[in-house]
């Protein structure tokens, strides 16, 4: 049951990802991207990580895609359709995509996946996630957590500095 569901969702995901990069309308591309992100949330649900799925939708669909659509809406609508790419661009793009594909395919084929391992991830409660995030011990994530928040703060300040009007 779960396996069939996984293959259906994975197929839809691949279709959505292809549609995202192949459409010439930027806004439609954003909508396909939204579909792909929702589908990845469904994989988290299949793995028993409900909280992660919720955060995925909240951050990526409610935040990133909305921001993308917003940015698209602020631009002129006749610039929105992509130009037909020239031949050199097509070749360079194909080489880049192929090399990335072959590297990741090679890496995936080399990686030893634990196939028989039964996952014990069902119902990771929020309390344990919160404690792990703020734990200073060897299994804690307080250092990465703080570093990430510093990075976000820097980005925030940079955004404000760029957007601010020069004082007259």
């Amino acid at each position: 049951m779960n396996e069939t569901l996984f293959y259906v969702l994975a197929g839809l995901s691949v279709f959505g990802a292809l549609a995202t990069v192949m459409t010439v309308h930027i806004l439609r591309s954003a909508i396909y991207l939204m579909g792909v992100l929702c589908l990845s949330a469904s994989f988290y649900v299949l793995l028993g990580a409900e909280f992660l799925a919720g955060i995925q939708i909240l951050v990526y669909v409610g935040g990133i895609v909305v921001l993308l659509v917003f940015a698209v809406m602020l631009t002129r609508s006749d610039d929105l359709d992509e130009d037909r790419p020239t031949w050199p661009r097509k070749i360079v793009g194909a080489v880049g995509a192929l090399s990335f594909f072959s590297v990741s395919a090679w890496l995936l084929s080399q990686s030893p996946f634990a196939e028989e391992k039964v996952l014990e991830t069902s119902n990771v409660d929020i309390k344990s996630i919160g404690r792990a995030l703020l734990d200073t011990g060897s299994n804690g994530y307080v250092l990465p957590f703080e570093v990430v928040s510093l990075l976000l703060l820097a980005v925030l300040i940079a955004g404000i500095v760029i957007a601010r009007k020069e004082p007259q």
């Binding site: 806004l27 909508i31 939204m34 409900e50 909280f51 799925a53 919720g54 955060i55 939708i57 909240l58 669909v61 409610g62 935040g63 895609v65 909305v66 659509v69 917003f70 698209v72 809406m73 119902n123 409660d125 929020i126």
Partner: peptide
């Protein structure tokens, strides 16, 4: 759901997208 509150906050993001798309299209 275990994540009831989070779930409602998350799916309400889809509604914003609907409004944005409706206005743009």
């Amino acid at each position: 759901m275990n994540i009831g509150v989070l779930f409602i906050s998350a799916v309400s993001g889809l509604g914003v997208l609907g409004i944005l798309l409706g206005g743009w299209s």
